[in-house]
Nucleic acid binder design. Structure first.
Length: 817
RNA sequence: GGGCGAGUGGCGAAAUGGUAGACGCGCUAGUCUUAGGAACUAGUAGGAGACCCCUGUGAGAGUUCGAAUCUCUCCUCGCCCACCA
């Protein structure tokens, strides 16, 4: 054995050997129970960052641990490789997006290999490759055939900088999720997926996801945004046969309506404008259109609006109230119109105050006059026959009356909108449809519909695909006449909504995947990734699985059984970013310390869910620890006995190091299997190393005990530091590979200390401690505690009221006087 | 404005009703050394200091024999959502 720990040498060596021997190739047919460990696959941006390192190390340790615990583990990796940066790089450098993307993939794959990740590379996929996007297109057609993919003209989110539309989920604070440009509204004809058909199930099934963080479930729940209420219909006074339906969650307040407000984009709003209000109203509507999402959405902006000069009739009391338009009313939610109840809605209150509209209180709890909108529960007043009802009962009674009198109906409303999937970009999967003058929209079954090469990447406002001379014009598959292809591509989130299914059957060129095989492997037992995907990717993937189940392709409801959302990697207390100049380059760490140090450190200081602060000193410290382990093994390598490679047996239980060995195995096993507490598991590595060093100082050393301790150490370390462990293991004749050995077991009895320290409290304050054998009977513990000199000092002249004994832990003597 | 999470040494953190600060970083002193940012030994919550002792987990109250942990009120920070009727 070498005296020096040289990670760069041993890591390269073992990476090569593992690959050659196919240690991480996952068989589909195995007697062992399956375990699917999955990291969120990366966008091939150029090189790995520390967030990737953390994500993939966490999953890797889980995968290795499960494998050692007898599972047939599937742990694949691939590339979310369509997307805008490749296209921007093409514009800047003149390289084709594919060239840029594949170069990045090659570099990053190499980095992943250097990290020593146990991937089955035979299952690698890239969403930008034909053999993958062919099936993305096929899935689109499934949606189309099921009537869940449709084209519609509507106001959509537009990012000028990216020159494309965005889904609602991709608009963050009124800005583009990718480039931060302010998002504007544009009216365009676009493709949508009808995710709203699954709103209720997506909401209900959150309850099934016991292994998901509450936080993520809450975020999805809020995003889906289910609310119960009623649609109430108000007739327009001036126009026969025209009515304005409103959605409200507070039908109980309908007697408090003092105005009606419609959004500036309300369909048919022109008809509602009286001639004398025309100029002002049109001006206001025009203005609203020009405003950005950001401005529109701002809550601290004062309410604005103009009266249209027409009125509606309240079906409940026959009152005539004016119709206004105001940009606080959202076009896309509910019916695009609201009934104004200033007394019981804060927004309506602000609106009414500003424009001097009446405020009529109809829900009452106390007798004080209203200084602001009263939104709590109470009793109905000023509400005709409904007076005196509690407002919850009132909601039902009002809705019932509306239904009986054709004035409205109960309604469940969701906030979730359909998923806008068209993108006016090149580097994505083309939407496989053809437009024919005669036949209309015809799905193109001749897949893949390949991306053309003859395009102008600098095209703005339309997809670069549309500039291709060879792509656009085609023959209609139905009638053979001239037709044109759809030139938009799909949102890349479509590609990432099903990739975990393709890993299971990555080479299938007959089908999207073999359903039996997928049903066998799914669902993903442990999914690991960043919280930033809490809504977007995770919601879309759940939707895909439910849809594919309904198409008969899948036999389960949810893709991800357990979800771990890892925290960010920080440096000096803030998020690593190029602009702040506080990034750490994984390559540098590999070069200076090796992958095992990087892996050890990124897991060691914080639990995986929490943010992790990268410090150079901490990385250095982990490197020193691995050197310390190496030195320990080197120091006693002549003593080590390869007959003791097996799991420590029950012999020599009188030896404290044997007990420690069993205790450590138990502790680490529990830390990792319960909640992936790698940080506390790693602290036990150190504790164990310290104990072994201490043992070396004892006058007599038992070779078998020492050997068992050291071989146990490298085995429990092997998921975290695979190279170092393999090296030491093989050095002493351990069977190849250490990663194919079973996880060490332990003996419950031996994993307990012989003696325990019992704390002695008086009135809850610690006063003394006493060593006692494990499981000493209560009476003996009590007697010995009371006989201690120090305790006698506290009980003298006082009355002992009671004595509480917690076995193997403490004694609390309660005294009075 | 709403929702969720967190607040413990100089720092990362342990402990989820039972001895607060495991393990580590940093720091202090020492050993070895030409020297050391290497290794090893000892120490390290604050106060007081030979020992005993007192105080201490954001603030305050409560439940309990016993609270970092449970309950209530408040403060601070972080994240998510946000004119959703």
């Amino acid at each position: 054995m070498k005296e020096q720990y040289i990670p760069q040498e041993i890591e390269k060596k073992w990476q090569k050997t593992w690959e050659e021997k196919g240690v991480y190739t996952t068989p589909d047919n195995s007697q062992k129970p399956k375990y699917y460990a999955l990291s969120m696959f990366p966008y091939p941006s150029g090189r790995l960052h520390m967030g990737h390192v953390r994500n993939y190390t966490i999953t890797d340790v889980i995968a290795r641990f499960k494998k050692m615990n007898g599972y047939n583990v599937l742990h694949p990796m691939g590339w979310d490789s369509f997307g805008l940066p490749a296209e921007n790089a093409a514009i800047q450098s003149g390289k084709h997006p594919a060239e840029w993307t594949f170069a990045n993939i090659d570099y990053m794959r190499d980095q992943l290999k250097q990290l020593g990740l146990a991937y089955d590379w035979g299952r690698e996929i890239a969403t930008c490759k034909e053999d993958y996007y062919k099936w993305t297109q096929w899935l689109f057609l499934e949606f189309y055939k099921a009537g869940l993919a449709y084209k519609k003209e509507s106001p959509v989110n537009w990012c000028e900088k990216c020159a494309t539309v965005l889904a609602n989920e991709q608009v963050i604070d009124g800005s583009c999720w990718r480039c931060d440009e302010e998002v504007t509204k544009k009216k365009l004809s676009q493709w949508f997926l009808k995710i709203t058909d699954y709103a209720e199930e997506l909401l209900q099934d959150l309850d099934k996801l016991k292994g998901w963080p509450e936080k993520v479930k809450t975020m999805q729940k809020n995003w889906i945004g289910k609310s119960h209420g009623a649609v109430l219909k108000f007739k327009v006074a001036e126009i026969n046969d025209m009515e304005i339906p409103v959605f409200t969650t507070r039908p109980d307040t309908v007697f408090g309506v003092t105005f009606m407000a419609v959004s500036p984009e309300y369909p048919g709003i022109e008809k509602l404008i009286a001639p004398e209000n025309k100029q002002k109203a049109c001006e206001y509507i025009e203005n609203a259109k020009k405003m950005s999402e950001m401005e529109r959405a701002s809550t601290d902006r004062p309410k604005t609006g103009v009266p249209l000069g027409t009125h509606v009739i309240n079906p409940f009391n026959g009152e005539r109230v004016p119709i206004w338009t105001g940009d606080y009313v959202l076009t896309e939610y509910g019916t695009g119109a609201v009934m104004g109840v200033p007394a019981h809605d804060t927004r309506d209150f602000a609106f009414a105050k500003k424009f001097g509209l009446p405020i009529v209180q109809v829900i009452k709890k106390h007798d004080e006059p209203l200084a602001e909108a009263y939104t709590e529960a109470g009793t109905m007043v000023n509400s005709g026959r409904f007076n005196g009802l509690g407002n919850e009962t009132g909601k039902q009674e009002i809705t019932k009356w509306a239904e009986q009198n054709n004035a409205g109906y109960h309604r469940v409303q969701y906030r979730l909108r359909d998923w806008l999937i068209s993108r006016q970009r090149y580097w994505g999967a083309p939407i496989p449809v053809i437009y024919c003058e005669e036949c209309g929209i015809i799905p193109d079954e001749n897949l893949p519909v390949r991306l053309p090469e003859d395009v102008d990447f600098k095209a703005r406002g339309k997809s670069p695909v549309a500039t291709s001379k060879t792509f656009v014009h085609t023959a209609c598959p139905a009638c053979g006449k001239d037709a044109r292809r759809e030139t938009d591509t799909m949102d890349t989130f479509i590609c990432s909504s099903w990739y975990y299914l393709r890993y299971i059957d990555p080479k299938n060129d007959e089908k999207v995947f073999d359903s039996d095989l997928v049903n066998k492997w799914m669902s993903v037992d442990q999914y690991v990734g960043g919280i930033e995907h809490a809504i977007l990717h995770l919601l879309y993937s759940r939707f895909f699985v439910k849809f594919l189940r309904d198409r008969g392709l899948l036999g389960f409801d949810e893709p991800f059984e357990n979800l771990l959302t890892q925290g960010m990697v920080l440096k000096d207390g803030s998020k690593m970013s190029k602009s702040k100049g506080n990034t750490v380059d994984p390559d540098e760490i590999f070069e200076n310390y090796g992958a095992d140090t990087a892996r050890l450190f990124i897991l060691s200081d914080s639990p995986p869910e929490r943010d992790f602060d990268w410090t150079d000193a901490g990385a250095e410290g982990c490197y020193k620890f691995l050197n310390r382990v190496w030195r320990l093994v080197y120091k006693c390598h002549a003593e080590l006995d390869s007959a003791s490679l097996e799991i420590p047996g029950q012999a020599r239980n009188d030896n404290p190091l044997t007990r420690k060995t069993h205790m450590i195995i138990k502790g680490i096993t529990e830390d990792i299997s319960d909640e992936f507490r790698f940080n506390t598991a790693i602290s036990k590595y150190r504790e164990f190393v310290n104990s072994i060093y201490d043992y070396l100082k004892s006058p007599e050393i038992d070779r078998a005990v020492l050997s068992q301790a050291i071989f146990t150490l490298v085995r429990v370390m092997s998921p975290v530091t695979p190279h170092l462990s393999e090296e030491i293991w093989s050095e002493f004749g351990g069977e190849f590979s250490i990663h194919e050995q079973p996880w060490p077991g332990y003996d419950e009895e031996l994993a307990k200390a012989e003696n325990v320290t019992i704390a002695i409290q008086v009135n809850g304050k610690l006063r003394d401690t006493v060593e006692m054998p494990l499981n000493t009977p209560k009476e003996d513990v009590e007697a010995s505690a009371l006989s201690r000199e120090k305790i006698k000092g506290y009980t003298r002249d006082k009355q002992v009221v009671k004595v509480i004994v917690v076995p193997n832990r403490l004694v609390n003597v309660v005294v009075k006087g």
